[in-house]
């Protein structure tokens, strides 16, 4: 390299720095844009649901149960109750299952068990929602209507709140298990050894050390799972029965919010108030998911900081 070439190298050095700066600002733009998406969705939903909020009070919308869009009655209560019931059922039965499985995976099992269970969970997590729906229709619906329901009620089609809860539970199972496993693995090994060396059994160690230590994290994980469960659409829609009513028993059909949105959106746009009402249901989902997510993420983050 001669002196002249060196000059060129100096120039390319300036060019390199320029490239670095330019790339930096392009990346910054992408980052900001993707964050902006969140604000955009929120704002869009609010603007679109303003018409109905101006017409009716929020109280009336959320806590009355008359749903006659053609006559202008928009009571969201049946849908909200439907969502709540389905979510509660799903969480109630998956919580113990996922908790015990996660404890088994982190505390007791040998490595080969993990090698078998984790791929199975991966499969479960990866299956499309619609496949769960098909499975629900083929397996859970007949089981409920033929075997389970006759013991409790006179007649059930099988397309019920309970069915939706079961199917939804299986869908959030892998999420819950992986959240719990992550949580339990973050507990330092020393803590367990301290307890074991005092003569505690494995289960006692789990009960008094692990579960106690990770309790806030478990709350956060469950919150996260709830917010995921609430938004699940297609699978629930396929098995829940889609009947606008307050579910009286577990074997009645119900109509959760996402199902309302999926079934009616895009068709009833001639009625501006109806469209606005549907957007309000999307907004409700958005707000719930937003709040739940922020809360649980902040808790989880705080735990991460204290444990590390």
């Amino acid at each position: 390299m001669t002196r002249g070439e060196y000059k060129i190298a100096q120039k390319t050095s300036v060019f390199r720095l320029l490239k670095d700066k330019m790339a930096g600002s392009v990346m910054f733009t992408f980052t900001m844009l993707s964050v902006l998406l969140l604000i955009l969705i929120g704002a869009g939903l609010v603007i679109k649901s303003l018409p109905i909020l101006e017409e009716k009070s929020l109280w009336e919308l959320l806590f009355t149960s008359k749903w006659k869009p053609m006559r202008g009655d928009f009571g969201f209560l049946p849908f909200i109750m439907g969502t709540l019931w389905v979510t509660v059922i799903a969480i109630v039965w998956t919580l113990p299952v996922s908790l015990f499985t996660a404890i088994f995976l982190t505390e007791n099992s040998r490595s080969w068990v993990k090698k078998v269970v984790f791929p199975a969970l991966d499969i479960l997590a990866g299956l499309p929602s619609v496949v769960y729906g098909v499975w629900g229709i083929l397996v859970v619906v007949p089981w409920i209507s033929d075997s389970l329901a006759p013991h409790f009620v006179e007649y059930s089609t099988g397309y019920s709140t309970l069915t939706a809860g079961i199917v939804l539970g299986i869908m959030i199972l892998p999420l819950m298990i992986s959240l719990f496993v992550e949580l339990f693995s973050s507990v330092p090994q020393d803590l367990r050894e301290a307890s074991l060396s005092l003569g505690a059994t494995r289960w006692q160690t789990t009960k008094y050390v692990l579960l106690k230590k990770t309790f806030p994290g478990m709350v956060a994980s469950v919150t996260l799972a709830i917010s995921r469960a609430m938004g699940e659409t297609i699978a629930v829609l396929m098995v829940c029965g889609n009947i606008v009513q307050m579910p009286g028993s577990l074997f009645d059909g119900c109509y959760p919010l996402p199902a309302l949105l999926a079934n009616n959106y895009g068709e009833m746009l001639s009625l501006p108030l109806y469209e606005s009402a549907l957007m309000l249901s999307a907004l409700i989902l958005f707000v719930v998911v937003f709040v739940f997510n922020i809360v649980s993420r902040l808790i989880l983050r705080k735990i991460e900081r204290t444990l590390v």
Binding site: I41, G44, G231, T233, P258, A282, L285, F290, N293
Partner: peptide, 14 residues
């Protein structure tokens, strides 16, 4: 994280 949690139906409606 929040964007990740938003249900796909909301994305669709938006």
């Amino acid at each position: 994280d929040v964007l990740f949690g938003i249900p796909s139906i909301v994305y669709g409606a938006f």
